[in-house]
Write a protein that binds this DNA or RNA. Sequence first.
RNA 1: UGGGGAGUCGUCCAACGGCAGGACGGCAGCCUCUGGAGCUGCUUAUAGGGGUUCGAAUCCUCUCUCCCCAGCCA
Length: 563
Amino acid sequence: MSAPETPAPSNFIKEIIKEDLKTGKNNNRVHTRFPPEPNGYLHIGHAKSICLNFGLAKEFGGMCNLRLDDTNPTKEEVEYVESIREDVRWIGFDWGDREYYASDYFEQMYQYAVQLIKKGRAFVCDLNADEMRAYRGTLTEPGKESPFRSRSVEENLDLFERMRKGEFPDGSRTLRAKIDMSSGNINMRDPVMYRILHAEHHRTGGKWCIYPMYDYAHCVSDSIEGITHSICTLEFEDHRPLYDWFLDELNVYHPQQIEFARLNLNYTVMSKRKFLQLVNEGHVKGWDDPRMPTMSGLRRRGYTPGAIRNFAERIGVAKRDSVVDFALLEYCIREDLNRTAPRVMAVLKPLKVVITNYPEDKTEELDAVNNPEDPGMGTRRVPFSRVLYIEKDDFREAPPKGFFRLALGREVRLRYAYYIICVNVIKDEKTGELIELHCTYDPATRGGDSPDGRKVKATIHWVSAAHAIEAEVRLYDYLLLKADPDDVEEGKDFKSNLNPNSLEVLTDCKLEPSLSGAKTGSRCQFERLGYFCVDPDSSKDKLVFNRTVTLKDTWAKAQKKGK
RNA sequence: UGGGGAGUCGUCCAACGGCAGGACGGCAGCCUCUGGAGCUGCUUAUAGGGGUUCGAAUCCUCUCUCCCCAGCCA
């Protein structure tokens, strides 16, 4: 049903896994995980990670866990957990019963921390945040050891237990790993393992008032779940020594962390912070606005899971920072929809046409193909009558060179119907505004073929006025004007590059009647215009469509270039 | 200026000492009852300098450029 997924090419992570399989590492298991923090909505960048982790498991006969990385109760909410689940499922992956939470392991993490204290590898520090920053040093200068670093094991044990019991206020103490304050890698300068946060956690409620930090929680969670390949993005590369340090000191099962470059796409933004600005400042209507590269936005826009999976395959996986061309995403969705979307006729900017030699009260039903790429999708009947609508853009009073469509005295084909010739252009006498066209049809060309073999240069779409259903259609364009949204003048931000025309709402659209009752989310191609899907804003008496993507339009491109 | 990474067509990814290849984009053409789809062809790249080698994108070396790190965020 969806586009054929191109044979998955290899990448450096697969090569590592193949090598591990060859040497018998991990007893030939492959076990990955997708570990989002439930503090926001997933976007196309997450989709890359999802496809990578679940895809690897699938390809090598392993498993992939869904793990919610919920170690910060002040930022995380159940609402996000549900949307993450929905999005992962929608892209097409299944984690079986392996839905885990970092918070599932809080007790184990606590016990491990006690072990590290006993080993002399962790201590309770009374420095506040500002002091700790001062002690940490800078990128070029080493840090200074905390004055609390040499506390006895007994005192550390006592203090840590009392931290857990809630005896101390937020921020007053931390548990820190005792590593190396002079390390060039700042992550190794006695990093915080636990902070005090008297906050309600979405799963553990009020049970805890100390919460583990990412570096400590993540490696331990991976270890507990028996993850073999812990795949994360490049910015965690210099956290890897810490990941390894914890697991080595704990002497527990030790997964391998592997880093890859996150996805960047041109003409859009990809950070939660920027999404928030767009939503809060009203530049888009919400997280699921079809212009947003969020999963919910893409879904509402009409993107298919298959297209997204295919896209994830095509962009590849590597370690170098890169910016993928948005055109590739568009190629992927067109490729999918071309094969799967039924064709239909819709006039977005209607121009009335009267076929003057066609009987007033006559209606015919003409056969139309549902998808030329797939004869199995059958045919349908489209009503034709004396008064029609055609696309305004398909008529020109003064046709420029290379314009094949309708003009005064010119003959074109109405798709699946008749050849027509424009014989008269009716305008408002006062304003000069174009009102309607008078055309004549050739009855011998019924169905769209002329028995005498004469050719027309253009075929245009149309809708019978008497049978048309009304709809609203929302056209979308790139959110940003510049490929690099951050390419701005001094003192400005990406929002100065916002495309003021990223949304165009058309309220007077005419659709062929077969579309009546179309269900929310259903997709189709409006012939010659693009792929569209039914928006949830649709109601019983009014359909609303989103344009997912235009068709390639060489005429429009040539016009644009001519300007 | 500390530490960690990365440099291959316009873009993304390959090539793992042996003819630099694919995809997207662009351009040209064919075909077409969607100016769609499809098909054909073309286009263009190993950051730079030294070295090793019969042979280097690949190994060594020096240089340059870019990205990440100074949260009790992840």
